[in-house]
Simulated assay, not measured.
Amino acid sequence: MVQKLLVLGIESSCDETGVALVECEAATGSPEVPRLLAHALYSQIEMHQAFGGVVPELASRDHIRRVLPLTQEVLTAAACTLQDIDVVAYTRGPGLAGALLVGAGVACALGAALARPVLGVHHLEGHLLSPFLSADPPQFPFVALLVSGGHTQLMRVDGVGRYALLGESIDDAAGEAFDKSAKLMGLAYPGGPLLARMAEAGNPKAYALPRPLLHSGNLDFSFAGLKTAVLVQSQKMLAADGVAHFEALPRSQQCDLAASTQAAIVDVLVKKSMTALKETGLNRLVVAGGVGANRHLRSELNAASAKRNIRVHYPELHLCTDNGAMIALAAGMRLQSGQQQASMAYAFDVKPRWPLDTL
């Protein structure tokens, strides 16, 4: 009988507190994907909206309040107890230092109290592997498009822990371009999803916005210039209509600018992803991270991939944003692959900046 491990995962890198429990095989080299038993998530969005962005100190304090009740919620849902846990995993980085320290501290305290090993996990590796929890999990090797918050990266993935960076954002990431453009339009934080919903009623060809680095000859990204172009275009629209605020413009114009902004971001992401697949000779694409939930991005990637006989894999929509399930999954897959061993040493540190390709 194959021995099973129960891995508790804690995510606290930014403004979401996530806890999850997965079951994986203890045998190194097992081909089985860890199975998600239960997960719980608390978002701090409402708290940070009043400030127009994440306030690190408030985020850290809220993680302290939420993490243990969420842990109990997960254990109850999975019909388990603390004593059933075999490994405690946590997000070690990248992220906000104070927020990371909460998750790391709680995880290591639990590990010490239960005499269980702990394992620090890379936040972006969690996102990258999260499609393995979907109904249509990928197979190695593949190209990964990571579009999560402040990160936009293309990676070649040959296995767990075997990552090669192909290209990345050199200034604003795609998620930042969505959120900052939305803020210029007067949308509440976080504005990216609101901009995407507004774009559904707009004309993506209404305004000629730039596609930065679209023809750069490499796989890097740059969206800071697009944000500036959105600002300039919105100022022209305000001047033409003689109004002081973007919200005072006709709704159709607002939706058109949102749609044009979204189209510019998506065009770059799709073109670079297709180029990465061509250059690597791979025919499988994994899309992960919060922006991976964007409907227009999924539609355009699906259409481009269908023309090239490429398989595209996404996380389930509820696992696109930060969550504990991806952290527990990544820990389980690392243990199964033999890439890393959990440790009984409970001294810990965090890595607010931690390149994924250095794993």
Rank of each mutant, 00 (worst) to 15 (best):
E176A: 10
L124V: 12
G95F: 01
L133R: 08
V118T: 07
L119W: 02
M155T: 09
D179Q: 11
H123S: 03
D136L: 13
F140E: 05
L96S: 06
F142G: 01
R162I: 15
T152H: 09
S134D: 07
L146Q: 03
E125T: 02
V143R: 09
L146D: 06
A135V: 14
P137F: 12
V147M: 14
S169D: 06
G159Q: 10
G126M: 09
G95Y: 01
G126E: 02
A144C: 15
P117V: 09
Q139G: 14
L114N: 01
H123Q: 03
T152L: 08
G126Q: 02
V143W: 11
E125H: 05
K180A: 07
R162F: 08
G167I: 15
E168I: 10
H122W: 01
E176V: 05
A109V: 06
G120I: 00
P141D: 09
L101G: 05
S148Y: 08
G150V: 07
A104S: 07
A144I: 08
G161C: 14
G150L: 12
E125D: 06
V118A: 01
E176T: 04
T152D: 05
L119K: 03
L154R: 14
R116F: 09
P117E: 00
S169E: 08
G161V: 14
M155I: 15
G111P: 04
V147A: 15
A107H: 09
F132W: 15
D179M: 08
G98I: 03
C108M: 10
A144M: 12
L133P: 04
G159E: 10
A174L: 08
F178Y: 15
A112Y: 07
D136T: 15
D179G: 09
K180R: 14
A177W: 03
G105Y: 05
F142T: 04
S134I: 07
G149D: 10
H151Y: 06
L165C: 09
L114D: 04
R162P: 05
F132L: 15
F178M: 06
G111Y: 04
V121Y: 00
G126D: 04
P131Q: 11
A109E: 09
A97D: 00
P137R: 07
G120P: 06
D171F: 11
G150I: 02
Q153K: 12
A112Q: 12
L101Y: 00
A109R: 12
A104G: 06
G111L: 03
G161N: 07
